[in-house]
């Protein structure tokens, strides 16, 4: 392995007091290399969002160690080294589209790079809507603004928490291809939380399949499909092989839980 991407060693996160403790994430260990795309795939409640929040320094593991590109999540966060997008677009309604994309500059106390914001807006196809407010846009457009905002500070790391989870299938698939393009242009170390199997296979280099209660990694699938991946590739036997493999692991994780 060359430069490290995300590195998790025996990461466990427990919530609650001693007598009523819930283990959200149990003993997760995984490594990726810099610039790779990792998906955390699992049913809801499997701790995948908790895992992402810990990598982003928004939550801390109870035990275990996390580094991202060699930095602790805390330093990664304070150094504004990553961009992040949530399922809820979290756009500020009183700011225009452009000023929402510029928001990370404001938060980081850096001067706005106007040319780069122009470029970002055209990359997500919203240059004509730069002066509109988020509440005047469709759900898909809002998520594009959120993605552009995540890229604003040219982060070397990108965290995506079900970024298209609230969208319809058509819009979602469309945005997934756009995301692939943006990701390949930015070379960012990316971690995406999703419960969409096909979405995970389409975008990822590695898929960490998780099971719930306690959240742990069942297996890691390395997706060895050529890039860029196109719509036609999604009906290839190789693609289906990965989808089937991920489904099996997900299913095994749930049946195992019901059996116990």
């Amino acid at each position: 392995m060359t430069d490290p991407g995300v590195s998790l060693t025996n990461v466990t996160r427990r919530f609650g007091s001693r007598d009523r403790e819930v283990t959200a994430v149990s003993d997760v260990t995984l490594q990726t290399r810099k610039g790779s795309f990792l998906s955390l795939l699992g049913p809801s409640g499997c701790g995948k969002s908790t895992l992402l929040r810990m990598m982003a320094g928004l939550d801390a593991p109870t035990t275990g160690r996390i580094t991202v590109e060699g930095l602790s999540p805390h330093n990664l966060r304070l150094g504004q080294k990553y961009g992040i997008a949530f399922q809820d677009h979290a756009l500020l309604p009183w700011r225009t589209v452009r000023r929402n994309v510029e928001f990370p500059f404001t938060l980081a106390g850096r001067p706005v790079e106007r040319d780069w914001v122009d470029e970002l807006l055209s990359m997500v196809g919203l240059e004509q809507f730069e002066h509109a407010r988020p509440w005047q846009l469709s759900g898909g457009m809002r998520q594009r603004v959120a993605i552009a905002r995540a890229l604003a500070l040219r982060p070397s790391v990108l965290f995506l928490d079900e970024p298209f989870g609230a969208l319809d299938d058509m819009t979602r698939q469309h945005l997934n291809f756009e995301l692939q393009r943006l990701w390949s242009e930015q070379h960012a170390t990316t971690v995406m939380v999703t419960h969409g199997i096909r979405e995970a296979v389409l975008l990822s280099d590695h898929i960490a399949v998780m099971s719930a209660r306690p959240g742990r990694i069942v297996d890691i699938i390395d997706v060895d499909l050529p890039r860029p991946r196109r719509l036609a590739d999604m009906s290839s036997p190789e693609f289906h092989h990965y989808v089937d493999r991920a489904s099996e692991l997900l299913f095994a994780g749930t049946t195992e839980r019901h059996a116990s």
Binding site: A56, G57, L58, R77, L78, G79, Q80, Y82, I84, F86, Q87, D88, H89, A90, L92, F103, P104, T106, L107, A108, L153, F159
Partner: peptide
């Protein structure tokens, strides 16, 4: 929204920002 607050923290923003 909690996500908006999270966003501010994600970019190293504190209570004042």
């Amino acid at each position: 929204s909690p996500e908006t607050i999270e966003l501010v923290h994600a970019y190293g923003g504190g209570r004042r920002r």
